[in-house]
């Protein structure tokens, strides 16, 4: 498993997970950057804001779900799920449209467990996107 650093800021560094050469978040962002441009722009804003100034307070844009999973949200449209690793790292797991909420949330928890397992056992690789 690879943790790809996609944004660095004064408050948080943001990573996205890549597994077996596949990054769910990148695939999703590529998809909505064409089909739902305004949603895409809002999500990028959310990442930038979080990296620079910290977690957003407005639950319409960033919300804790359960068991340590959070969501960057564009209400009624799309979600990107994440979890926090320590006090300065946000790890993005996957993204989906709101009609696939249940499967998406389950997948985020599974990815987090595999990330923590890989980290604990020393086979998590870190890489930087061109920041």
């Amino acid at each position: 498993m690879i943790a790809l650093k996609i944004r660095t800021g004064d408050s948080f560094d943001i990573f996205a997970l890549e597994e077996d050469g596949e990054c769910k978040v990148l695939e999703f962002l590529n998809l909505i950057s064409k089909s739902r441009r305004q949603c895409f722009l809002k999500l990028v804003n959310g990442f930038d804001r979080t990296a620079d100034t910290g977690l957003m307070q407005n639950e319409e844009r960033f919300k804790p779900l359960h068991a340590g999973i959070f969501e960057f949200r564009v209400p009624g449209e799309v979600r990107i799920l994440c979890f926090l690793d320590g006090s300065g790292i946000v790890v993005l797991t996957n993204g989906f449209t709101t009609d696939k909420m249940e499967a998406g949330t389950r997948h985020a928890s599974e990815l987090r467990d595999r990330y923590l397992d890989a980290k604990r056992n020393g086979y998590l690789t870190y890489r930087e996107d061109n920041l």
Binding site: L4, I6, A16, L26, L29, N30, S33, F47, D48, N130
Partner: peptide
């Protein structure tokens, strides 16, 4: 994927 995070952002 056709664009990197950096390109998209």
């Amino acid at each position: 994927s056709d664009q990197t995070f950096h390109e998209l952002f």
